[in-house]
């Protein structure tokens, strides 16, 4: 059977293949000792070992659960707060400086408090993800609300919309494209944070697995964890990209 690949599939495949070849060459040339530069074969073996023992799946589930919980919490609180700030100038004046302060504070700075307040496990990690994703979501939603052309509200008034209909039929659909873009960014951020948080405040999860491999000097398992983390990050983004394909938000990306 002949498989036809378009250049949009072929080019990225070639780049990945090139990277793999470079990895093989570097490990064959022994530029670094095997103990600090595992070969692709060693990593593949490590992957099989981790998958068979069930640890990989457990870590994956633990990390995904934390990211999903923290992310969903931040979306369901951040969007309403952003809507409120977008509509109320007083609220904006009062709260924006504080929100900007927290937004610029790395969530990792909260790690010590997260452990002291919530112990070790799911809760501190969820808290850290929330702190990473909440503020950008608020800012993005607020900006999107403020940039809705006022003519849409005039039209809504002309056609007798109630306040709740304005929210559901004008404000929310008008901000949807920008909010979806910001969700993609914050989901990526949340995925970065979960790994870092689990390294310190976790007893399971992909970040913990990496830290554990480092402590056991199992560089093959460490690379295995890195690959899985990268792949899952890409998958999360691919899933969120599907949101941009909804017909009623296409307008936000096509002009």
């Amino acid at each position: 059977m002949k498989i036809k690949l378009s250049s949009s599939q072929l080019l990225p495949a070639l780049v990945l293949l090139g990277a793999l070849l470079l990895w093989i060459v570097l490990s064959l040339l022994k530029v670094f000792p095997e103990s600090v530069f595992p070969s692709p074969l060693a990593v593949a073996k490590g992957f099989v070992e981790e998958a068979r023992s069930g640890r990989l799946l457990d870590d994956l589930v633990a990390s995904l659960f934390r990211v999903t919980t923290g992310f969903v919490l931040s979306v369901f609180t951040g969007i309403p707060v952003g809507l409120w700030l977008g509509r109320s100038q007083r609220a904006r004046q009062a709260l924006l400086p504080t929100i900007n302060f927290f937004r610029n504070l790395s969530p990792l700075a909260w790690i010590p408090f997260a452990i002291l307040w919530f112990g070790v496990g799911d809760l501190p990690t969820i808290f850290l993800i929330f702190m990473a994703a909440f503020f950008p979501t608020v800012i993005a939603t607020m900006g999107a609300v403020a940039s809705i052309p006022s003519v849409y509200f005039r039209v809504a008034r002309d056609y007798g919309f109630s306040n709740s209909k304005i929210l559901t039929h004008v404000t929310l659909p008008a901000i949807a494209p920008q909010v979806i873009t910001s969700l993609r960014v914050t989901a990526g951020l949340a995925w970065l944070v979960v790994v870092a948080a689990e390294m310190i405040a976790g007893r399971a999860g992909l970040g913990f697995a990496i830290w554990d491999a480092r402590n056991g000097l199992r560089m093959d398992l460490l690379v295995c964890g890195m690959i899985v983390i990268g792949l899952i990050g890409v998958v999360i983004d691919r899933i969120l990209v599907q949101l941009t394909k909804i017909p009623s938000v296409r307008w936000g990306y096509e002009r």
């Binding site: 052309p149 003519v151 849409y152 005039r154 039209v155 002309d158 039929h169 004008v170 659909p173 008008a174 949807a176 009623s248 938000v249 307008w251 936000g252």
Partner: peptide, 15 residues
């Protein structure tokens, strides 16, 4: 009943 047509695009782009 009054209806207005505005100078700039005012169709809801999401509909």
């Amino acid at each position: 009943g009054v209806r207005m047509v505005y100078q700039h695009d005012s169709l809801f782009p999401w509909q």
